[in-house]
């Protein structure tokens, strides 16, 4: 399919009128109709039902609309990225990262970004989940990285990056340190460190309650750094997402029957024009190998990855 065909289709889907769509795209209506027919023949079905003045999308048209819009946007992005920046051009980028998500997994991409865009000027905001969502909505940032935002906002595009399991984390001098597994009943006599700023705090609370951990004493903090500091001071134990925990002095123990994972996603606002730095970073984040595959099992071949290569001379 071709970009102009999709552009015409998107205009038709918005105007539901071939004449108006042709005007908007600045083409003669017969050209637009021809391009639509050609797209329909490639997709193997009608996209719109033509009725006097007002046309409407068929079931196939409805189904294809978001996919074709995404394709069109990514083609525009590809063209924008290819255009070389002039020397001295400034490439601003405002990003919000949830307080509970460490920055370290993203530094290779940020470093690469500043290499190809010497004019990069990064603004990094930290915040709670609601602050992250708000700064995206208001346009204060173009891109956000966080756990589930729990937002029903339809303009929010979420691209899952990786999933982190929740494990029990204790000080290396703690009596549970060195265990292969732990159980909820091991926590009965412990003080729990809880980060109320964690986007999964509610799910975790429910999990604890369901497993009989109700009246345990707690220390409550609002940042991940404070929680790790208290853990290193052996002030209690914590159940946290362990994907990128800095583990020196700490011990990570899988907790039986706890099946809690946090999905970290990159968020952008659909339909909003992305500047070059944002578009480049988004593509890098989406292409990256996170080692953990959000919500999906790897394909069969990957389990034996490289075996053919090894077997051959």
């Amino acid at each position: 399919m071709e970009m102009h065909q999709i552009r015409y289709f998107l205009a038709v889907s918005e105007t539901l009128n071939l004449t108006k769509a042709a005007e908007r795209c600045n083409v003669a209506q017969p050209s637009l109709t021809r391009a639509m027919k050609s797209l329909e023949s490639e997709l193997g079905g009608e996209l719109l039902r033509r009725e006097r003045a007002l046309s409407h999308l068929t079931e196939l048209g409805q189904r294809m609309l978001p996919m074709l819009r995404q394709c069109y946007e990514s083609a525009l992005t590809a063209k924008m990225l290819a255009a070389s920046m002039r020397k001295g051009d400034i490439a601003p980028l405002a990003v919000a990262v949830s307080r509970t998500v460490p920055l370290s997994p993203f530094t290779p991409m940020l470093r690469e970004l500043s290499r190809v865009l010497p004019g990069l000027q990064l603004t990094l905001r930290r915040g709670s989940i609601s602050e992250v969502a708000e700064s995206l909505k208001s346009g204060a940032v173009e891109l956000a990285i966080a756990g589930p935002l729990g937002e029903g906002w339809s303009r929010l595009d979420a691209f899952p990056l990786f999933e982190e399991p929740f494990d029990l984390v204790v000080n290396e001098t703690h009596r549970l340190a060195g265990r292969n597994r732990a159980e909820f009943k091991d926590l009965v006599s412990e003080t729990l460190l809880i980060n109320t700023g964690c986007e999964m705090a509610e799910e975790l609370g429910a999990s604890l309650a369901a497993n009989g951990i109700l009246d345990t004493p707690t220390h409550q903090v609002t940042t991940r750094e404070d929680l790790l500091t208290l853990l290193k001071a052996n002030m209690g134990v914590a159940i946290i997402a362990t994907g990128a925990v800095e583990t020196s002095g700490l011990c990570r123990i899988p907790l039986n029957e706890l099946n809690l994972v946090r999905r970290v996603s990159v968020y952008t606002v659909a339909g909003r024009r992305r500047a070059i730095a944002c578009a480049t970073l988004l593509n890098m984040l989406r292409a990256a190998d996170w080692g953990l595959d959000a919500g999906r099992k790897p394909q069969r071949e990957l389990i034996n990855g490289g075996t053919y290569a090894q077997r051959r001379p």
Binding site: E42, M64, C71, A75, N283
Partner: peptide
């Protein structure tokens, strides 16, 4: 798998292919 010395690039959402008229459904 192929022991290929050359780079294999990622074209996210087929954006580059699409801009060349090479993407299909």
């Amino acid at each position: 798998d192929a022991q290929a010395p050359f780079p294999v690039f990622t074209d996210v959402d087929n954006g580059y292919a699409m801009s060349l008229g090479l993407a299909i459904w």
